[in-house]
Design a protein around this nucleic acid. Structure first.
Lengths: 123, 123
DNA sequence: TATTCACTCAACCATTCGGTTGACTATATC
DNA sequence: GATATAGTCAACCGAATGGTTGAGTGAATA
């Protein structure tokens, strides 16, 4: 849109926004490479739905697959995850330095005011 | 869905999947607290559209607003960003430890072999 | 060869998303 | 009080999402 529009980040964030897909990613992390049916097993949806989720993850670069006979082996792919982490980690200071503590303090103060003088702050 | 479905993460990732919203977040980081109209200024869309984007960011906990007279001051909120970073950083080893280096090495080696002895490795 | 197995493709459906325009509310200013 | 300013709310629209079912493809197996 206005420059900051790296399409890969769009796809990666969008892919990770779905809990089923995050579960798939987590599963691949904890148990390593897997097949589509094995991944679909515990999930309360059709195999086709899982397959579609994997396509989304693959297009986002979060996962890669290779055919092995009649089954597709799916594995985690680091690069897109790295890009996401790098983007997010740029904002580290917003939760770990004193600005955060200050904000927390101001919030507490605001709540205090609300509690003591509700008429001026209702809603 | 299967337990790993923290709704806040859903909303945060979904919010960050849109380039306009990432731009808003970046803007708030670089220039600090701002009003809705000021944020909307450079963006090629209506004020209402920007307002809706800010609602999404707010519901995701990425941003907070406070009224100041007739204008709404919007600022970055660290917590949701922190949650996202924490989730993503769990996957650090998938791009930074020796498995990655090994993969890169093998890839380089494969290319090298291809280049020096193409007949034995033609796809 | 016939059949099962692993998986994708295609069509469909309801819901959500990102944008628009128009009307409204509330604060500031003349 | 009249008017401009800052912003939301509501209705609408087209496109994308997340799921379904049914059919098709290609590899393993009997």
């Amino acid at each position: 849109m206005v420059e900051h529009c790296e399409p890969s980040l769009n796809q990666a964030f969008a892919a990770l926004a779905d809990p089923t897909r995050r579960w798939l990613v987590a599963r691949l992390r904890s148990r390593g490479e897997s097949t589509v049916t094995a991944l679909a097993g515990p999930l309360p949806m059709s195999l086709q739905a899982v397959s579609k989720h994997l396509v989304v993850l693959e297009r986002a670069g979060l996962v890669r697959r290779r055919r092995a006979g009649r089954e597709h082996r799916v594995a985690l792919e680091g690069r897109a995850l790295k890009a996401v982490a790098e983007w997010v980690n740029e904002y580290q200071r917003f939760w770990e330095d004193r600005l955060d503590a200050l904000a927390a303090h101001m919030e507490r103060q605001a709540l205090e005011i609300e509690r003591t003088d509700p008429k001026e702050h209702q809603q």
